[in-house]
Design a protein around this nucleic acid. Structure first.
Length: 162
DNA sequence: GCCAACGTTGGC
DNA sequence: GCCAACGTTGGC
């Protein structure tokens, strides 16, 4: 059964356009750098074929910009062992890796971003973690219902006047 | 740039 | 195992 997730990314660091490029070139990308146990545990539950709402954070306005899918299930994050990498973790070792990644591939970019404000205005999405104040978790589960509500919004296929 | 909301660390 | 101090995320 397909599960649904929301992955956050800062567009300055890794945008959906870069994911699209990497998908064209390499078939996808590995989601490096998650260093939070809750987010890691969610990532380890990801199954091939799961669908991902792609959220741009730390930008104006923050919001969901498209859809990705899981193309490879959790395996050790390669950069945790690389001393020169920002995400190097000296407490992790190859025989006992602490952090995981999954591979994601680009599926689609919405015609228009669904901003956080707009998400908050939809009553059926009131329980989503991302609309809650102070939520910092970069990977959160999404219900089928929430995913369907979002992907049937007009932003997905046509520009919306705001 | 501020600050709320957490997660992590480390002294005890 | 408690909790204060500190660090990070991310909206505003």
């Amino acid at each position: 059964m397909t599960q649904y997730w929301l992955f956050k990314s800062e567009p300055d660091v890794y945008s959906i356009d870069q994911l699209k490029e990497d998908t064209k070139k390499y078939g996808g990308t590995y989601w490096e750098g998650v260093r939070n146990y809750q987010a890691r545990n969610f990532m380890r539950q990801c199954k091939t074929g799961d669908l991902v709402l792609y959220y741009h954070s730390n930008c104006k306005p923050p919001g969901i910009v498209g859809i990705a899918k899981v193309v490879k299930e959790a395996y050790p994050d390669p950069v945790q062992f690389d001393e020169k990498n920002t995400y190097y973790d000296p407490k992790s070792s190859p025989d006992n890796p602490r952090w995981s990644v999954v591979d994601l591939a680009f599926v689609k970019k919405f015609k228009q971003k669904i901003s956080l404000d707009e998400l908050r205005s939809v009553p059926q999405l009131a329980d989503m973690k991302v609309v809650r104040k102070g939520n910092r978790l970069s990977i959160t589960p999404v219900t089928k219902k929430e995913f369907e509500v979002i992907t049937s919004m007009p932003h997905v296929s046509a520009a919306v006047l705001s």
